[in-house]
Design a protein around this nucleic acid. Structure first.
Length: 473
RNA sequence: GGCGGCAUCGCCAAGUGGGAAGGCAGAGGACUGCAAAUCCUUCAUCCUCGGUUCGAAUCCGAGUGCCGCCUCCA
């Protein structure tokens, strides 16, 4: 079985073959740190976090890079508005980004490079492009000459001539072609700037990704990922800059996720129809948000609504119940040695679900189908767990392992429950009290205790093997 | 104007030539002192029209509706 990835460049699913056997270099376009991230920003971070985890599962050694854009117009404008320096603004929102990312179980990249910490590499690259004749300077600004790069438009399927006609860009009359883009921008007064061969200035937007990705991953990356809105012009321009400089393919597999919409419109800061991760997090756990994101294939559009989150929460609850129930049986401490037909069925079913989960993920990270395997196995397992008699320990452990590996390690949608000693003691005492009441069929008292515990966020479940309790929220 | 995407049960969502997955919600039932959890049963011929085919949600053509990129945007 082999992994297939949809490549935007070829518009086909392709077998994934990294440049170096067993190793993957992956770069994901990160946030511009001028504000809190919204759920639409979070989609690629979650999706590609999972792609990365899955690649690791497949045995690849993955080097994962996600940048922070910490210098551009939005940074400058927002810093002015808030009356802080650009660097202070960046510092704050990088911190906020990590708070949000952590809440969503998004693992840290191996490196989180920042544009302002790679000015030297950026200048080198621009200089190289200028020397090779792909770039030209006009009065402190440096532009990329698109007409010199023959395959411009190959990623987005755009034709240079059409682009020129349709250019909505403010035409800078000094540029050779309307669609030439800035590699280096001359400093305006009051803006942060760096010394360069062209005078004081700052990098253009596209150049940082080329410079930083190649610095950490080499001239050819295995995977470069981001939202579909980056295909043009951002990634198109990255290809032009990088390949013009190195004369080597810049990226083997381009991955782009579909938009997250609100009321069927793309969620974006400029439209103002955004839901910040921080806001949603007040009401829903990160695992729920992740589940919601995974419920659709990453390339399809996904519409955000509170109703959807509620559905995600309910769905996830079902999985959590099953996992909780396995754990409960495991802590009972009594098992049978033998393995009969029912045990074998579970082990067989586990094997099947495992295989199908992998098949789904191999098919361009088809998480909705992968999720369905978690549910399919849960049904079989619930039947087993509810059947009378002792259970086989190995079967329970293997089943638990299945969810730990797939739901937790790869998808990251499992909730970690941390015990609180004092709280548990109080609960245990109440449960004991209720058991006494139940023995003498004092239903009134036992129901009352159950209600009290519910108030405290504890659900009691009477099972043939004894009381099972769990915390909610 | 150029390029691209989407339309499948009340809601969400897979499936791209031969069984319409899965989840949520709903209905009925079982289990339970009552619950909870769980299980069982039930719940769609796939936007429209035409075509290709023994056979199409899936391919082709026309149409309708929605969305995106071409300007900052994940």
């Amino acid at each position: 079985m082999s992994l297939k990835i949809y490549n935007t460049l070829t518009r086909k699913k392709e077998k994934f073959i990294p440049l170096k056997e067993g190793e993957v270099g992956m770069y994901v376009c990160g946030p511009t740190v001028y504000n809190f991230i919204h759920i639409g920003n979070a989609r690629p971070f979650i999706i590609f976090d999972i792609a990365r985890r899955y690649l690791k599962f497949k045995g690849y050694k993955v080097k994962y890079i996600q940048n922070f854009t910490d210098i551009d117009d939005k940074m400058i404008n927002n810093a002015q508005k808030l009356n802080v320096t650009v660097s202070e603004l960046a510092k704050k929102f990088i911190k906020e980004y990590f708070i949000d990312a952590d809440s969503l179980n998004i693992r840290r990249a191996d490196i989180h490079p920042r544009a302002t910490e790679h000015i030297k590499e950026i200048i080198e690259l621009v200089k190289d492009l200028e020397e090779k004749g792909y770039a030209y300077e006009i009065d402190g600004d440096v532009f990329f000459d698109v007409s010199k790069f023959k395959s411009y438009g190959k990623l987005s399927g755009q034709d240079i001539e059409e682009l020129k006609l349709g250019a909505r860009v403010e035409i800078d009359e000094r540029k050779k072609n309307a669609i030439d883009f800035a590699l280096w921008k001359k400093a305006k007064s009051g803006e942060p700037s760096w010394e360069s061969p062209w005078g004081k200035g700052r990098p253009g937007w596209h150049i940082e990704c080329s410079a930083m990705s190649m610095k950490y991953l080499g001239k050819t990356l295995d995977i470069h990922a981001g939202g579909s809105d980056l295909i043009f012009p951002h990634h198109e321009n990255e290809i032009a800059q990088s390949e013009a400089s190195t004369n080597k393919p810049f990226v083997r597999y381009w991955m782009h996720n579909g938009y997250l919409c609100l009321n069927n419109q793309k969620m974006s800061k400029s439209l103002g129809n955004i839901m910040k991760v921080r806001e949603i997090g007040q009401k829903y756990k990160g695992e729920v948000i992740r589940y919601f994101i995974l419920s659709a294939h990453y390339r399809n559009p996904l519409n955000f609504s509170e109703d959807q989150l509620q559905q995600a929460q309910n769905s996830l609850q079902r999985l959590n119940n099953t996992i909780f129930n396995i754990k409960h049986q495991l802590t009972q401490g009594k098992f049978k040695e033998s393995r009969d037909k029912d045990d074998e069925i579970i082990l067989e079913k586990r094997k099947e679900s495992r295989q199908q989960f992998i098949e789904a993920m191999d098919d361009d990270f088809n998480t909705p189908v992968a999720l369905s395997q978690l549910f399919g196995f849960a049904r079989e397992l619930n039947i087993y767990l509810n059947s009378p008699g002792l259970k086989n320990k190995l079967v329970l452990e293997e089943s638990y392992e299945f969810y730990k590996e797939f739901a937790n390690e790869i998808l990251g949608i499992l909730k970690e429950v941390e015990p609180e000693e004092s709280f548990e003691l109080e609960i245990k005492n109440l449960i004991k009290e209720r058991e006494e009441a139940r023995k003498v069929k004092n239903w009134e008292k036992s129901d009352q205790i159950r209600d009290v515990l519910r108030e405290k966020g504890v659900i009691l479940e009477d099972t043939p093997e004894g009381i099972r309790w769990k915390k909610i929220k």
